[in-house]
Nucleic acid binder design. Sequence first.
DNA 1: AATGCGGGGTC
DNA 2: GACCCAGCATT
Length: 373
Amino acid sequence: MLQQTRVATVIPYWERWMARFPTVQALAVAPLDDVLAAWAGLGYYSRARNLQKGAQHVVDSWRGELPRQAGELRAIPGIGPYTAGAIASIAYGERAPLVDGNVARVLARVFGIAHDIKSTIGQRVLWERAGELMSALPADAAPGNLNQGLMELGATACAPTGPRCLGCPLASHCVAARDGRQAELPVVAKRKRVDELPVIERELLWIEQGGAIVLVRRAATSGLWAGLWELPEVGHVDATFAPAAAFVAHHDQVLSHRRLRVRVRVATLATLVVPTDPTYDRIERVALADAADLGIAAATAAILRKYQDAPWATVTRSAAPDVAEPRARSRTRSARPRRARRARCTRTRRSSSTAAGRGPRRAGRRRRADRRR
DNA sequence: AATGCGGGGTC
DNA sequence: GACCCAGCATT
């Protein structure tokens, strides 16, 4: 989880993850849908798939117990040079170096390394330096502490902008501090401006049936949002809508390498069958409350969140009349016991409940607040 | 050696 | 907006 993701962001995900998958075995045998659901919102979803592959690898090849050497760890799916070094040094005390974004910044400044830190040559030089530091470590010192110290330095004093060199313990050894080149180092390749990113324009469909929203699951095991659920895209399902029907919602979002522009229109679906289109491999009706338990990419999640109370989201409203019509309230309401159904069960089973327009009744708005986040 | 892959905090 | 986060796998 910590690969390219801040600690503060990870923590709540990690808590839920460990509760859901307490052991390597539990993760290894879990349905991919559950794995992606627990990851949804974190991004870089191949990490989730690789983590499960890694768990299966550990179960199959190591009897469920993680190997301890960096070289062995490196062969596990999802564990690259950084993670192998981190586990080996911090968890098992091996004198294994590591270089992450923080360490790269610290070393580039301290040693005045002028190569692009992402480039092959830059990485090689950084790993060499990190290895030399590790080799110079006194025999009674903990290798993990050196690595964590370097990372922590990068996360605190040696910040990307405005480094606080005054209190830095390495200031007297630092080339960048000595020469006042903190702003020039590390050298990092210029990234594309947002307005230069390729734009993905998507037209998604808001289809309600029996108080539920229609979602589809993307099929591929690789590629953007692979295995995640989303609103159906026009042209990929057997849906109909008035040609002149206006877009009722929109959502813009910037990815690291794409700009996403989503528009939504209300549609109806002729048949709830998996389209022959290979883009999706499943289609389901899902109550909004249950949707939050699926692995849903951020764009669709944001649209569901933003527009579930919109005037045109009619079925959704009738699914939770306590908010919609104050009049009907007194009569029907009080009769019914409050928390009738918990809207538990996350995975949408294609069974009886969705058949007769029954199903997900009052799911709508109750739990929405406590789940996102 | 380069590219694909997310999402969000923070300045 | 721009920057970047306890990177990895694939091409």
